[in-house]
Design a protein around this nucleic acid. Sequence first.
RNA 1: ACCCCCGUAGCUCAGUGGAUAGAGCACCGGCCUCCGGAGCCGGGAGCAUGGGUUCGAGUCCCGUCGGGGGUGCCA
Length: 546
Amino acid sequence: MKRAHIHLRDALEKALRELGIDAPTVTLERPRDPAHGDIATNAALVNAKPLKLAPRVLADKLHGSLALDASLVSCEGVAGPGFINFRFANDYLQSLVALTICEPGTFGRTGDLSGRRVLIEFVSANPTGPLNVVSARAAAVGDSLTRIFRELGAQCDAEFYVNDAGNQVELLGQSVLARYLTLLGQEKEIPEGGYYGEYIADFAKELAAEHGDSFVTAESNSAAALLGRKAMERHIEMHRKSLEHFRVSMSNWYRESALRENEAEWQAFRELERRGTIFEQDGAKFVRTSDFGDQQDWVVVTSQGKPTYFLPDIAYHWDKFRRGYDHIIDILGPDHHSYLTKMAAAMAALGEEPKRLEIMLLQHINLLRDGEPVKMSKRAGQIVEMDELVDEVGVDAARYFFLLRRTSTPLDFDIELAKRQSDDNPVFYVQYAHARIASIFRRGQLEVPIMAEHLELLTHEEELILIRRLREISDVMLDCAVSRDPHALTAWLREVAAQFHRFYHHCRVLTSPAELQTARLCLCRATQIALQRGLALCGVHAPQEM
RNA sequence: ACCCCCGUAGCUCAGUGGAUAGAGCACCGGCCUCCGGAGCCGGGAGCAUGGGUUCGAGUCCCGUCGGGGGUGCCA
């Protein structure tokens, strides 16, 4: 898909070598202004100094000595301080349409990240209640990133870390037990730090209906432990269903309880101890993270001899390192901001390369209704559930909206806008373009083209601009992968849709002469494939009609 | 006090160290004998601030001001 770039880079390197540069580095960039062509290079500016030439002079020399294949790119000349500009040949652009419709599966594929192993952990909500809208944003971003990495050829796993061990199981159990006993006429308080959500009471009602008073007679602590595990499994199942409905599929559900069964947290502790990074103070065991770049040291074992949450987390991340991933990405909420230096320091203390761990802080979301802040929850305003939002606006709009902003920016999510069936709704604007193409085929009672014919007739400016847009998907995907942020994809989709509408307005399809009609139908088909691909990476459907 | 994120058009936001900083919304004006007007065409203004790095800074570094978030022997 990128042969014009490869050809051009080879030609520039060859020309520079002939001028006496031993190891030329050539960077190709896309000019901001389309009038400057499709590709620009600053090769003359960068290499002018060692050759003791003025940049413009070197640019002219290069310009004169380049051997370019005119069916791919041509040189537009030297501009500005010494940029050399190039333009794609129409032949090349037309060949991209042919490739797209003949082999749709290859569209946008470059294999840029093939062989790379990536792990993305996201959502990882505590199984003590339903998923909220913050998890929903994480789910949308994490899943789209996973899809993008895979599309680029990386082997990418999506992982949910289930905190199904430790203190909270017990607290959850006691909360359920309290609700349950209250239902059966015994006064019982929810413990300090327990869970008050209505879903706890719902669960208690089900227990009472199903099992009567059989948990009343049991010894209180063991009943709480049992109910805690039951409630937790129920929440994990709810999370799984919510995510599945949201079109998110995890490669692994990694359970903390499994980790603890192997005593992995103690293995990690002994390794830290062996490396001399553990010290004791006031009866508690600290890891000396301050030796590895953190601001402070952290407790890993309390004076009661129990591990803090940090120790199993260390063990978990250590396990990720030992599973051999090149990039270990955590998507966390903004409140986990101390986690990066902390965990990176812990990994360094274990002798791992901390740079392999990347922690992305996903900013929070503000729900709005026609511009006014809302609390959506039916449950006393405590939490805003993911399922409520998705039920109201639909999976397509929810997923797309979550990708509209950079992850480092808080997101205003306007529920009414997401539901609106009009062109100011960005997801509708893009889906409409796809449906409109489908309707052209329906209206003309035409088969969707699978063969490229008469593409040399695609010479209208709007046609060529559209093809240029489609071509950009490879660059956009790589940009998303490198920045660990899929938001550029939605911008690209909007551009493709907008350019398709311009093409549609200026270039008649069905009423054109037969050969031109065939060519334009091919372009419509290529656009349709591009929109499908881009929307699929967002986890959004491409409808045939709306 | 310290740490992190963010200050770009009226609003919401894009902008891999490159050329005249871009979109969407909102606002105003055009376009339906025409494949879906859920569309198209046209119209304005802006990099918080002071230094530094260099051929070149919205972008990188330091400071200041302003907004947000974080800093448990909780998870």
